[in-house]
């Protein structure tokens, strides 16, 4: 490769590099830097403060009056609850999304186009509006609440402002993110493989387990990541449908940047969340590589 070739390459890559540095690298770097500073008295950040890891320490330890550090599990509990909530939502999306995607792939081309449209239509409406819609459905005296009360003999059921409501809301919001990648796998799926499985003695259930699910695994993993990761940081749905009683990580972060005006601490939580997601994705990638090796 000649020198002019190298130069040409650098020049051609420049726009992409600048975009990535400016739009991804810079904000992340800024967030990392802010997480090391102290909160300001009037603004969110005291830009002049000396960098320290104090904000990260605050996540796990609390400084007692005499200066000793004692364990503070508040944030750990919120973190674990967020992971659990996100995991439950992912599982629900999988259980609902997989059959839908499978069914969609079996339709005629027109049917598929219509279903794709129906699946994506909710995106056209604001997330807030959709959550308020669930608020109306789930509240006391809402039609779902009345229906459940009519069927449930042990007194009125509180549907709203609990983890179940949050799970319902999150599942509803993120279901398309599961359906679309799984559908894209099934769309390309070679259905003769199922015939081959039947031919070799596999019943329908066995063919599903031994052929359809393993072949669809890349789509299932992609969909699960697309649901799990934004769920972990979700704050609108837990705030509205959870009634602020059950905080998730996203709510804590939002509170730091909003009412608490503690940007450095919010940035620190964000960095930790990011690190955990990166670790999880790396682990998943390694596991997949080992399996396909």
């Amino acid at each position: 490769m000649t020198q002019s070739d190298t130069l040409r390459r650098i020049v051609l890559m420049l726009p992409a590099l600048v975009a990535i540095l400016l739009l991804v690298g810079a904000p992340l770097g800024l967030m990392g830097w802010v997480s090391l500073l102290e909160k300001g008295t009037t603004a969110g950040v005291d830009w002049g403060s000396a960098p320290s890891i104090g904000n990260y320490q605050r996540l796990v330890w609390e400084e007692d009056f005499d200066g000793t550090l004692i364990l503070n599990t508040n944030y750990l509990v919120i973190f674990l609850r967020s992971v659990l909530q996100a995991a439950v939502t992912t599982l629900l999306c999988l259980m609902l999304g997989l059959p839908v995607a499978l069914w969609m792939a079996s339709l005629s081309p027109t049917g598929r186009a219509v279903m794709l449209l129906l699946v994506t239509i909710p995106f056209w409406t604001n997330l807030l509006v959709r959550n308020y819609a669930w608020l109306i459905i789930l509240r006391e005296g809402g039609w779902l609440g009345m229906a459940v009360d009519a069927l449930w003999p042990f007194g009125p059921v509180q549907l709203l402002y609990n983890d179940v409501a949050v799970a319902i809301g999150l599942t509803y919001s993120f279901l398309p993110f599961m359906v679309l990648p799984v559908y894209s796998v099934f769309e390309k799926f070679d259905w003769r493989l199922v015939e081959a499985a039947h031919d070799l003695g596999a019943t329908r259930a066995r063919a599903l387990r031994r052929v359809i699910l393993p072949v669809a695994m890349p789509g299932i993993l992609a969909g699960s990541l697309l649901v799990f990761i934004p769920c972990l940081g979700a704050f609108v749905t837990p705030a509205l449908l959870g009634g602020g009683k059950t905080l998730m990580l996203g709510n804590v972060i939002q509170m730091q940047f909003g009412p608490s005006r503690n940007w450095p601490f919010g940035a620190a939580i964000s960095v930790v969340l990011l690190a955990v997601m990166l670790l999880a994705m790396t682990a998943l990638a390694l596991w997949r590589n080992r399996r396909s090796a």
Binding site: R192, E195, D199, L200, A202, R210, V215, M217
Partner: peptide, 30 residues
């Protein structure tokens, strides 16, 4: 009778080998 209850096996036009399984796992399937 459904295909999985027939004493018959098929070699498909485009083979329809299971892409996620090795050669021996494919052969061991039945």
């Amino acid at each position: 009778a459904p295909p999985f209850r027939r004493p018959v096996n098929t070699v498909f036009q485009n083979y329809a080998l299971f892409p996620h399984l090795t050669v021996e796992q494919n052969v061991a399937f039945s």
